[in-house]
Amino acid sequence: MALIFVTGSSTGLGLNTAAALSADGHDVVVHARTTARLPHGTWYGTVIGDLSDPVQTVRAGQSANEYGRFDAVIHNAGALHPPDAVRVNTIAPYLLTAVMIAPARLIYLSSSMHRGGSTDLTGLPSAAGSYSDSKLWVTALSAAMSTRWSGTTTHAVDPGWVPTRMGGAGAPDDLTEGHRTQTWLATTPDVTPVTGGYWHHHHTQHPAAAANDTRFQARLLMELGDITGVPLP
């Protein structure tokens, strides 16, 4: 059984992901913005922290480290509107990745909307980027991490436009299918490709070209390190 950390697991895809993993017998550490928002259930552990706040994000990562090295970390937490879209969707995953013990698997939630994101990083320090920008940037972060650490594999997942609180009741994609790929990636022994995949419903796709542009990845990591003051190991 695996030890797995799921951010943003109080509702929606994060809760469904955590519940499915727990039902399969895995040790799941859930995360919520506040204690009051922690999901009901019997969990292996809990982590509290507002991921729109870099200080709280670092503390959340340090709290997660108390459970030891995770088999998988699923960066699920998300926000739709600026400035929280950039803070939660891009900066928080970067900070958690930088401060946590490197897990065996890193899984970042992307979106098909990343294809409309911009490579202009001038808005990153002020978190002025759009939702699409934030998802392009986290997809590039995932690609950059895919070969960075020996012993850690990395994937990005587009869960689809599903009817969660953020997606809206009219979202056309299947809610159950929305969490299956990330739970599978977190626990399946053999995945092809081993690292660096961009996934949608168990199938790999080609992300936007910028996500795999190593020069853009380098600029992004440098900018994130500068604005957070936390370099990536």
Rank of each mutant, 00 (worst) to 15 (best):
L95T: 01
L21S: 03
P193K: 05
W137I: 00
D190W: 08
T187W: 04
G41R: 06
P172L: 03
H40R: 13
L175W: 04
A64N: 05
E66D: 07
H31L: 08
P54V: 01
G45Y: 13
H202L: 12
H200K: 14
A23L: 08
V162S: 06
G151M: 07
M145Q: 14
P159N: 03
N16G: 15
P172C: 07
W184D: 02
P39Q: 07
G197K: 01
Y108T: 14
V194P: 12
P231K: 05
S52Y: 12
T152Q: 15
H81R: 12
D27A: 15
H203Q: 15
T17G: 04
D27R: 15
G116Q: 14
K135W: 12
T152D: 04
P93R: 01
M222Q: 14
A92Y: 04
A102K: 13
M100C: 13
S111I: 00
H179W: 15
G196T: 01
G197H: 04
S134D: 10
I91E: 09
T228W: 12
L15V: 02
G225H: 09
T17C: 11
S142H: 03
W137E: 09
G167F: 01
G117W: 12
Y67C: 05
G45L: 09
S130Q: 11
R215T: 11
Y108N: 06
N16A: 15
V30G: 00
W184T: 03
S134F: 12
L224M: 05
M145R: 06
H203T: 14
A79L: 02
A211W: 02
E223W: 00
E66T: 14
G178V: 06
L109D: 12
P125Y: 06
A210I: 00
T17F: 10
Y94S: 00
V194S: 14
S22P: 06
T139P: 02
T192M: 11
T139E: 12
R219S: 00
D190E: 15
T46Y: 08
P39M: 11
V58N: 01
G49W: 11
Q217C: 07
W137K: 00
G117H: 08
L224A: 03
T195S: 15
M100E: 11
T228I: 01
D226T: 15
G61P: 05
L51G: 00
A209N: 10
V138C: 08
L136N: 05
G197M: 05
W184Q: 06
W43F: 06
D24E: 13
V138N: 10
G170C: 03
L51T: 00
R59K: 13
S9L: 13
P163K: 09
R180E: 15
T164C: 12
L3F: 05
T97Q: 08
V29I: 13
T46D: 13
L38D: 08
A171C: 06
N89D: 13
R33Q: 04
V191E: 09
A85F: 13
L136W: 06
H75F: 15
A64V: 03
G68T: 02
G123K: 02
S112P: 10
A85Q: 09
G41D: 10
N76V: 09
H26F: 05
K135Y: 07
A77M: 11
V6C: 04
L221V: 02
H26P: 04
G68D: 10
H81C: 04
Y44G: 09
N89E: 03
R105S: 03
L136I: 02
R37V: 02
F216S: 00
P82A: 14
V47I: 11
G151Q: 07
T154S: 15
L109V: 09
S142C: 10
